[in-house]
């Protein structure tokens, strides 16, 4: 009798395990897109899987690829560093929301200059990248940095050669502060750079700047920190000098008017506020409002709901900035737009 009970219990357990495994397998959330948020998405996914058993299959193939994949409906969500405009969103029936933010910082390699010692403003940065300011001891730079010892040396400009959301946000900022940049170069994930050399990825820009004397580049904040690079301070829209740090990026998010753009597609470049870092950027998720599979979309939203609630500490540890709570509330409101058979697929607990 005991034996028989044991067998039944065992086989039930085995069956349950098989059933559970296959359910977990089927419910794996699939997404593809931007490389910038990949480290935090994979950290969140690991913790989430441990808690719920639901995994995330995220392919970091780049924002362009993410947009293409979600339009082709091969994934449950696409991820892009470049927010889509209202027209594009409605044309493809997409809902868009930001997940985390990061900062972009200028980095330099000048003998004797320490991190945070130099300060630049947007106009000067744009003119350096246009090839109008060619030497470090140019009056425009010297005026901002009266105490620093600037060399009489040519500026070696380094930019991202691969198309990237970082470049998109960086050029958005330059275009915002310098009308000439807007007219002659413009804004995109890659542009026709007037001067300089291109390097692949944040890592490539970091390596090129570290090796080239008198160079300047731009990288995501996390890379500047990890590589102990010489970042510069910036003069923000309010005319105040700010250092790149989490609180300055968060200030940009707090001061932004998120509801001004469809799909929260606010670009955080050059936001107002005395403590705001001018080159802050959010990364976005794209999902179909007419859900292909209600269960899959619900699982994805559940994951992001959990990430907003529990993932802040993990994000900060990787030098990302979590979304402010009031923005998260608006986002979860927006999620009601994701429907199947006329009903929202997921209701966030608010």
């Amino acid at each position: 009798m005991l034996n028989r009970l044991m067998t039944t219990a065992l086989s039930a357990a085995v069956l349950a395990a098989i059933g559970f495994a296959s359910v977990a397998q089927a419910a794996d959330i699939s997404g593809a897109g931007a490389t910038f948020p990949y480290p935090i998405y994979s950290d969140w996914a690991k913790a989430y899987k441990k808690k719920t058993g639901t995994g995330l299959n995220y392919q970091a193939i780049g924002s362009g690829g993410g947009i293409k994949q979600i339009e082709a409906k091969t994934v449950t969500f696409g991820a892009s560093d470049k927010p889509l405009g209202g027209d594009e969103l409605s044309k493809n029936g997409l809902v868009q929301f930001p997940t985390v933010m990061g900062g972009i910082v200028p980095v330099v390699n000048i003998k004797g200059i320490k991190p945070g010692e130099l300060v630049l403003d947007g106009k000067t940065l744009a003119e350096i990248y246009m090839g109008k300011i060619t030497k470090w001891n140019d009056p425009a730079i010297a005026k901002l940095n009266k105490k620093a010892k600037l060399p009489d040396a040519a500026i070696a400009v380094v930019y991202r050669s691969d198309g990237s959301g970082t470049t998109f946000n960086y050029t958005t900022y330059l275009a915002d502060v310098d009308p000439e940049w807007k007219d002659e170069v413009g804004v995109n994930t890659s542009v026709e750079w007037p001067v300089g050399v291109g390097a692949k990825g944040n890592q490539g820009v970091a390596a090129n700047v570290e090796q080239t004397q008198n160079s300047i580049g731009y990288v995501e904040y996390a890379y500047a920190l990890q590589n102990k690079m010489t970042y510069t301070d910036m003069i923000n829209k309010a005319g105040k000098r700010v250092a790149p740090k989490s609180s300055a990026f968060a200030a940009a998010a707090e001061n932004a008017d998120w509801s001004s753009q469809p799909g929260f597609g606010v670009i955080l470049a050059n936001q107002p506020g005395a403590k705001t870092w001018p080159m802050t950027a959010a990364t976005f998720i794209l999902m179909h409002s007419d859900a292909e599979s209600a269960a899959n979309s619900a699982e994805a939203l559940k994951f992001f709901d959990w990430a907003y609630a529990k993932g802040d500490k993990m994000a900060l540890k990787l030098d990302y900035i979590p979304m402010p709570d009031k923005v998260v509330k608006e986002i979860e409101q927006e999620w009601r737009e994701i429907k199947a058979d006329g009903k929202p697929v997921y209701e966030a607990k608010m």
Partner: peptide, 26 residues
């Protein structure tokens, strides 16, 4: 990775395969 035709062979340039590898994803 600069889309320019420099006269100097010391200058940065680009090649077909490098341009594709750099830009296709985005």
């Amino acid at each position: 990775n600069a889309h320019r035709i420099p006269s100097s062979i010391l200058s940065p340039g680009t090649t077909i395969s490098a341009a594709i590898a750099n830009e296709f994803t985005e």
